[in-house]
């Protein structure tokens, strides 16, 4: 599986023919994003200033602001790019599965595999998510909605195929599943758990959550 996000490394060539000006602008963005990704990972969100990021990218603060309105926009762009990389794989993992548990474990395995590799960035993104602005919260919810739809689809297939009861509260079950999925990252952060350990735990937690919902 390849997890190369569009802004981890600067792209070498672009399929679309761009004017020289547009090309230069795109390169600047990519340089800023690559520097920002590194600094957010090293210092956390609060610890990395626009000034530091500009310096690391070898440009002026003004040049950074020409591409991004503020630090939160820069940070969100990194997270969105990552999210786009894993979303397609999560979808595929979920659709190829034969049971509800397989589908949920499959899609979260993709997420754990990706985020555990870059834990410092994940820590920063979770930290920010607790205190961000309402506008940033709304934007983040749009991404989350897609993931919740994936979970919802998996549960619906479980109902259709007779694995789950017909009268389950799918929204509530999806929420609890998401809660334990995210909460488990604490084990990776504090106890150094591997992807396999996280998935084994999640698998046990799904049994607890779905015990009353099985048909």
């Amino acid at each position: 599986m390849s997890f190369v996000s569009v802004n981890i490394e600067s792209a070498t060539d672009s399929p679309v023919k761009l004017t020289r000006r547009a090309l230069a602008k795109q390169r600047t963005r990519e340089r800023v994003l690559a520097a920002a990704r590194r600094l957010f990972s090293e210092r956390g969100y609060e610890g990395a200033t626009i000034r530091d990021i500009a310096q690391a990218a070898g440009m002026s603060t003004g040049a950074v602001f020409a591409s991004f309105a503020d630090k939160s926009e820069l940070f969100e762009e990194i997270l969105t790019a990552d999210y786009e990389v894993i979303y397609a794989q999560m979808t595929q993992a979920s659709r190829n599965a034969k049971t509800v548990d397989e589908a949920l474990l499959g899609l979260f395995a993709v997420a754990y595999g990706f985020h555990v590799e870059q834990l410092p960035l994940l820590r920063a993104s979770i930290a920010v998510s607790w205190t961000r602005s309402e506008a940033a919260e709304r934007r983040a919810r749009t991404d989350l909605k897609h993931i919740f739809r994936l979970i919802g689809d998996a549960l619906q297939r479980g109902v259709d195929e007779g694995q789950l009861k017909k009268d389950i509260d799918a929204k509530l079950l999806a929420e609890i599943t998401w809660d334990v999925y995210v909460a488990n990252y604490r084990r990776a952060v504090y106890d150094g758990w591997s992807v396999e350990a996280l998935l084994a735990r999640l698998s046990e937690q799904l049994k607890v959550i779905f015990a009353g919902a099985r048909a």
Binding site: W130, T131, D179, A183, E204, Q205, V208
Partner: peptide
Amino acid sequence: LDLQLVVDTLKAAYAWNYRMAAA
């Protein structure tokens, strides 16, 4: 039942409900 597993699940739900307050 593994009671600690149930506790972990409850605590995760408890903590993440504060997202409603954050939002």
